[in-house]
Simulated scan of single mutants.
Amino acid sequence: MSRLRSSRGQSNPYSIYTKLRAMGDVVPAPWGGYLLLSHELCDHVLRSRKWATFDAEWRARQGGGTRWDAPASIMLSQSLQGLNPPVHTMQRRTLGNVFDNATLGALRGPVTRIAETLLDRLAEQLRTAKEADFATTVGEEMPAATISHWLRLPESDHDLLKALTHGQGLAQELLPSKSQLAQANEAAEGLRTYFTPLISERRRTPGDDVLSRWIRVWDEIEPDRAVADEILFHLVMFIVIASLETTSTLLSNMVWVLDQHPAVLSWLRSHPEQVPRAVEEVLRYDPPIHLTTRVATEDTVLGGFHISRDEVVHVMLAAANHDPAHHPSPETFDIQRTESHLAFGGGIHYCIGAALARLEATVLLTSLIRRFPTLRVSVPPVWEPRVAFRRLTALYVTER
């Protein structure tokens, strides 16, 4: 596990997952809790109501002076990912199907224009410098531009939002260090400083944007506007950080994975209609989130282990996506697969932005293979030493 937490380990975590799986489907962790390695058990825990997320009540029971009472951690416990029924059910219902077919249809044009603009920048960098960092030029910028368009946020705020999102993501690591928690706490304060006046401004001058619509919905539900605005803050904050952090990794990782499979990439150029399936296999092969965690709501038995109420299990999503019992020949990149994967989680906490992430990836890859037929990765990517949320910090490409 210490190797997994290094940059080198992140460059190939799957060899480590294979060694873990050899120890069993359920592996006791030395710091407490259990690692779940099989697709069957991971899928079961994500869908079962016997398993909950880290809500405020659970965190309070852990006592003070732990990572769970850090400001960034508390903020997450009040967002959708940190809520359990019935509160989670009610808040999710107020959002409706956020990215339904109508919304995605309306976004396809803007997302396409964003992709083309960013690829223009990439082309210019390749023309002048012969090499460009795809991760910073396209991978990180496209989700920021997309969510900003949807929420009507200024382009000048993209760099700030990306920095705050990456900082807050450290609070969701498996075993964050003190310095990582400090960065996360600073980012949490920055997110509140950014979104609080934004909500106030939209309340003063509401429009037809999505945030203004949420404000109107919550004004009908919650008579106390201070309470409503606090809920709105956590909703919009969560959607922004979820959209930026994971999709940016998906977009850059998509380029890296396909570069490592040139025969598949060549076939895809001749069959662009298969791009959605390629995106799905990238999500299966190396998802943006490698693990998430759940808490037992009652004493139970899982994979032969007795697990007490309030004990945690680490759902190893990426390992489950390479479980040979569910995915034949899991190390083979095969865009014709039909088996389900857990890249977006499962159950009531299934990723709220999954459809938008798929749209962005599909639009970008379709344009990329059309416009850059000789694009290649020039040096191996640089990975941040994380375990839960993968982050590719540099991916240099060139045209050959």
Rank of each mutant, 00 (worst) to 15 (best):
V397W: 07
R5E: 08
S200K: 09
G353C: 11
T297L: 11
R370I: 00
A29Y: 06
R358M: 05
M316K: 10
D224N: 13
M254D: 06
T246Q: 11
P206H: 05
D323Q: 00
N101P: 05
S77F: 01
D159E: 14
S252Y: 12
H234P: 03
L395E: 02
W68D: 07
I221Y: 10
P272R: 07
A318S: 15
V379K: 13
V138T: 05
I369Q: 09
E230Y: 12
I352V: 14
M142T: 04
H349L: 00
A22K: 05
Q180H: 01
W256M: 09
V210L: 15
L119S: 07
E360H: 06
M237V: 07
L392I: 12
L76Y: 15
F344W: 11
D259W: 00
V382D: 09
T112K: 13
T246P: 04
R8S: 15
F99S: 09
K19M: 12
E220D: 15
A228S: 03
Y14S: 01
N185S: 08
H166K: 04
L342P: 13
I16Q: 06
L95V: 02
T94G: 08
P330M: 14
D159F: 10
Q336F: 15
E57D: 15
R337H: 09
R8I: 14
W383A: 06
Q180N: 04
L291N: 12
E201K: 11
N185D: 13
R59D: 02
G33S: 00
P154T: 02
R400W: 03
E173I: 09
L83W: 04
A56P: 06
L268T: 10
G63S: 09
I335T: 07
A354R: 07
A188I: 00
N321G: 14
P176V: 01
T292V: 12
P206F: 10
L235N: 03
L244G: 05
G353F: 05
A388G: 11
R269Q: 12
K130C: 14
L250H: 07
L365W: 04
A355D: 10
D55S: 14
A394V: 15
S11C: 07
I289W: 01
I289Q: 07
S248K: 10
G167P: 00
A354Y: 05
L191P: 11
V26S: 11
K178W: 10
A115Q: 03
R284S: 02
R61E: 14
E220G: 09
R391H: 15
V377L: 04
D286W: 03
V26R: 04
L365P: 04
E399C: 08
Q91T: 07
V397E: 06
T196K: 10
L356E: 02
I221D: 04
N185Y: 00
Q180R: 13
A22E: 11
Q81D: 06
E140L: 11
S266K: 14
S6T: 14
R49W: 13
L317N: 08
D55T: 12
A22C: 09
V313S: 00
T117I: 02
R376E: 03
P287I: 05
V387R: 08
D219H: 15
E116T: 05
G32L: 01
T53L: 03
K50M: 15
T300H: 14
V377F: 06
P197Y: 07
S212L: 05
S77M: 02
Q81C: 05
W267F: 14
L258W: 02
